[in-house]
Design a protein around this nucleic acid. Structure first.
Length: 421
RNA sequence: GGAGCAGUGGCCGAGCGGUUGAAGGCAGCGGUCUUGAAAACCGCAGAUGUCGAAAGGCAUCCGUAGGUUCGAAUCCUACCUGCUCCGCCA
């Protein structure tokens, strides 16, 4: 969430930058609501002050108590009515605020969609094949390691069974990634996979994107997490952290996405699933350091791709392509020779204080100083399923078998390649 | 799921209708003492909102939401969370 007073103060500039994201915002009500709120506050507080003054006199004087208690009752009713009006106003205002996305950082290029993203780095060499490289699902199905039909039978479309060595590969990747991040200073967390509405609101998935989430039935409402970002960022909700910052966490979790309306895109394969597995890295950073920390986050995610020998590139997303809560985002895209395309495998974002304000995550800048909102960042490090896809497509051989990079062998119990079951 | 107990400032913890925004302790800050530090002593010190150029004033906040009352941290109701015991379960 944006800061209410900042928005009011810099209204035109904020609206202009928000419009760079595309879509149109209707903020016609905002300024009227804000002015009304201010006015009502002044009136209400004057009445409350009056009430407190009289009450003070009544405390010690039984005569006054008798004489004034009727008038006080009336004043009480007025106050109550004003409070109710104020509450309604605040709700309307915060309803508007909750719909507003984050303001893109000045260093973010302006543009309508992914065509305006800037590739800032390319790493690795695309593999040369003497044959036509296959897509991962052809490879997987031919090896008998990937089964979409049975998953459809059990769960419907956009689910998959991995079998044998491929199932193990994803487990190995997760362990490998976590170990790497822990070695670089992250604390491992195993988070809950079901979270409350508050947690989803804290990180910005709600209220705007409720349709994208799976949620439980019955009076006990819980949401299946779309990413470990939600439980891990909310880990410090309502807290005041002591220095030093940053705090770094790495968490594995399955991720659940309903993505209503995405039917028809990437219908085949593992790229777009209702459930996938991801290792997420999260930082709670000092506001002054958060831009640099975003670079470190990108480096931490890149490290995994480099160790696995997967060619990738880094894009700075433009205003129109960024997520709702993000201030600045770098996407890591891995090369998929079977698809002959770069595909997103990690998204690293700096949220500024947008999530921190919603989830009330603060830090104390110095001993005795006032608590201040900190900055939150997170990135995939990496999406495990898509990493497996990348390995299949980049390390495939003409006979359909797939070699595995040496760093994974210990995690695979000595298995060095994927061959037909 | 059933029964009981509890939720107070950064942390611990008193208070149980008006004098309490809240005792006391710890942590923090400033000072005295000291070559320096520690200890001891003295003082300062919550959050949010609102008015104001500022100094400062005012308001709200004792798990959350309501209610009773002229007045609620204190009484009532519901809900949430935690703890203990029982049941169930990996």
């Amino acid at each position: 969430m944006l800061d209410l007073k900042e928005v009011a103060k810099n209204f035109d500039a904020v609206v202009a930058r928000l419009n760079d994201r595309g879509g149109k915002l209707d903020l016609s009500r905002f300024q009227a609501l804000f002015a009304e709120r201010k006015q009502l506050y002044t009136e209400l507080e004057a009445n409350q002050a009056q009430k407190n003054r009289v009450q003070d006199e009544m405390k010690t004087d039984p005569e006054k108590r008798k004489a004034l208690s009727g008038a006080m009752k009336e004043l009480g009713a007025v106050i109550k009515e004003q409070e109710a009006r104020l509450k309604a106003l605040e709700e309307a205002l915060s309803g508007v605020m909750l719909q507003l996305p984050n303001v893109p950082h000045p260093s973010v290029p302006t543009g309508p969609d992914e065509s305006a993203n800037q590739v800032v780095k390319t790493w690795g060499k695309k593999p040369d094949f003497l044959f036509a490289p296959k897509q991962h699902f052809e490879l997987g199905e031919k090896l008998g390691l990937l089964d979409f039909e049975r998953a459809a039978k059990v769960s419907g479309p956009r689910f998959a069974f991995s079998r044998g060595a491929l199932a193990r590969l994803e487990r190995a990747l997760v362990a490998f990634m976590i170990d790497q991040h822990v070695a670089r200073g992250y604390e491992e967390l195993l988070p809950p996979y079901l979270v409350s509405r508050e947690a989803m609101t804290g990180t910005g998935q709600l209220p705007k994107f409720e349709d994208d989430a799976f949620k439980t039935q019955g009076d006990h409402e819980l949401f299946l997490i779309p990413t470990a970002e939600v439980p891990v960022t909310n880990f410090h909700a309502d807290e005041i952290l002591e220095l030093p910052l940053p705090r770094r966490y790495v968490a594995f979790s399955p991720c659940f996405r309903a993505e209503a309306g995405s039917a028809g895109r990437d219908t085949r394969g593992l790229i777009r699933m209702h459930q996938f597995h991801k290792v997420e890295i999260v930082r709670f950073a000092h506001p002054e350091d958060s831009l640099g920390e975003l670079d470190e986050l990108v480096a931490d995610a890149s490290n995994i791709l480099e160790l696995l020998g997967l060619p990738y590139r880094v894009s700075l997303l433009c205003t129109g392509d960024m997520g709702f809560a993000s201030q600045k985002t770098f996407d890591l895209e891995v090369w998929l020779p079977g698809q002959n395309a770069w595909r997103e495998i990690s998204s690293c974002s700096n949220f500024g204080d947008f999530q921190a304000r919603r989830a009330k995550i603060r830090f104390r800048p110095g001993p005795g100083e006032k608590p201040q909102l900190l900055h939150t960042l997170n990135g995939s490090g990496l999406a495990a399923g898509r990493t497996a896809v990348a390995l299949l497509e980049n390390y495939q051989r003409e006979d359909g078998s797939v070699g595995l990079p040496e760093v994974l062998w210990p995690y695979m119990g000595g298995i060095k390649e994927l061959t037909a079951r």
